[in-house]
């Protein structure tokens, strides 16, 4: 319900014409495509069900159409911002994170799924991205290497 209200209140936040900002002022990446698979207000409400339904179809029946495929969402919505930086899942500028952080709905899709497009472009992005896993918990708690801001600074320069 909270998500619904929030997304309705945000009717003009993003179209497909240029960079927009979410409720937190984060820049939402401009999608590559010309048109989403559903109207904006509909996709905001129904994307969990669409993705869940498609997930089961793909997993169990091998149906691999592009409609409502998470991979296709990523291919279209994960793009560089004006400075050429591509946000990782969990960072404020990442397409899904910008809303999900505002409404405090935890996402675990990207613990398994790639947060990068599958194009050749994506391969390049993948190789240049920082590898932030494998640090022991204590180290990570002591240092700030898990701080999104620290990561982004490190990435820009």
């Amino acid at each position: 319900m909270a998500i619904l209200l929030w997304s309705l209140s945000l009717s003009a936040a993003s179209d497909f014409r240029g960079p927009s900002r979410d409720a937190n002022g984060n820049v939402v990446p401009t999608p590559k495509g010309e048109q989403c698979i559903r109207p904006t207000d509909e996709i905001r409400r129904t994307h969990p069900e669409l993705l869940l339904h498609k997930r089961d179809l793909t997993m169990h029946q091998g149906i691999r159409t592009k409609d409502a495929s998470l991979k296709e969402c990523i291919n279209c919505h994960v793009t560089p911002d004006s400075s050429g930086k591509v946000a990782r899942a969990g960072e404020p500028g990442f397409f899904c994170s910008s809303c999900h952080q505002s409404v405090s709905v935890k996402l675990d899709c990207f613990e398994c799924h790639s947060d990068r497009p599958e194009s050749a472009d994506g391969e390049r992005l993948r190789q240049t991205s920082p590898h932030s896993s494998g640090t022991p918990l204590v180290d990570r708690l002591l240092s700030l290497s898990n701080n999104p801001k620290a990561v982004s600074q490190q990435k820009v320069r």
């Binding site: 091998g62 991979k71 990523i74 613990e111 398994c112 799924h113 790639s114 990068r116 497009p117 599958e118 994506g122 993948r126 991205s129 590898h131 932030s132 896993s133 494998g134």
Partner: peptide, 25 residues
Amino acid sequence: HETLTDQKPYMPRGKGTVESCTLCV
């Protein structure tokens, strides 16, 4: 057994779940 990053887009894998040969599905 550990956190993974940079999985292949066509082969999602993640910590705490079991996996095996998919016959390159």
